[in-house]
Simulated assay, not measured.
Amino acid sequence: MYAANRWAPNKAKEAVLTQLAAWDFRPGQSVLDAVEAVTVLLVATTVADQGHRVSVHLSDQDGQACILALSHHPGLADLDDDAGPEVLHQVTAHRSVTECGMDTGPDGRRVWAVVDL
């Protein structure tokens, strides 16, 4: 969990990289670059929702990692903003991303990506 401020994306990026290393994932530099960029994009998107905090959730399965960022800002509209498609386009620009998505729920905006490691 991070305060929703300008430092959150980089703190989350470091935490994701640290956890992947702890799980003994040693992807190549291009995949690491994608994980870094995608994490920063996801967290920056949730920070922009102007809630008080954001959280990042990381899971792995079958050589893939799922990175999910949550804004914890309840009451958001159903993604009528222009950020959604642009963010997802930027996320999928990374070749190692196999899936991504974004939605809102009672706990705020959720944005996620699955990365081949």
Score class of each variant (00 low, 15 high):
33 D>V: 02
33 D>R: 03
33 D>M: 02
33 D>C: 00
33 D>H: 04
34 A>V: 03
34 A>P: 09
34 A>T: 13
35 V>M: 07
35 V>T: 12
35 V>P: 05
35 V>L: 07
36 E>K: 15
36 E>T: 15
37 A>R: 13
37 A>L: 09
37 A>P: 01
37 A>D: 14
37 A>F: 07
38 V>I: 09
38 V>G: 06
38 V>T: 09
38 V>E: 05
39 T>H: 07
39 T>R: 10
39 T>N: 09
40 V>W: 02
40 V>R: 15
40 V>K: 14
41 L>K: 13
41 L>M: 14
41 L>F: 14
41 L>C: 09
42 L>F: 08
43 V>L: 10
43 V>W: 09
43 V>H: 08
43 V>P: 03
43 V>E: 08
43 V>N: 11
43 V>R: 06
44 A>W: 00
44 A>K: 10
45 T>D: 14
45 T>L: 01
45 T>A: 11
45 T>P: 06
46 T>W: 00
46 T>V: 14
46 T>L: 00
46 T>D: 12
47 V>A: 05
47 V>W: 04
47 V>N: 02
47 V>R: 04
47 V>K: 03
48 A>Y: 03
48 A>E: 11
48 A>F: 01
48 A>W: 00
48 A>K: 12
48 A>L: 06
49 D>W: 00
50 Q>W: 05
50 Q>M: 14
50 Q>L: 14
51 G>T: 04
51 G>Q: 04
52 H>A: 13
52 H>E: 15
52 H>N: 14
53 R>Q: 13
53 R>L: 08
53 R>K: 14
53 R>D: 11
54 V>A: 06
54 V>T: 05
54 V>H: 05
54 V>P: 00
55 S>Y: 03
55 S>N: 13
55 S>E: 15
56 V>Y: 04
56 V>N: 03
56 V>H: 09
56 V>W: 02
56 V>G: 02
57 H>D: 12
58 L>Q: 04
58 L>K: 08
58 L>V: 11
58 L>E: 00
58 L>G: 04
58 L>F: 05
58 L>T: 06
58 L>N: 03
59 S>N: 08
59 S>W: 01
59 S>G: 12
60 D>Y: 07
60 D>E: 12
60 D>G: 04
60 D>T: 10
61 Q>E: 13
61 Q>L: 11
61 Q>V: 07
61 Q>D: 12
61 Q>Y: 05
61 Q>H: 12
62 D>W: 01
62 D>A: 15
62 D>C: 00
63 G>I: 08
63 G>R: 06
63 G>A: 10
64 Q>I: 00
65 A>C: 11
65 A>W: 03
65 A>G: 00
65 A>D: 01
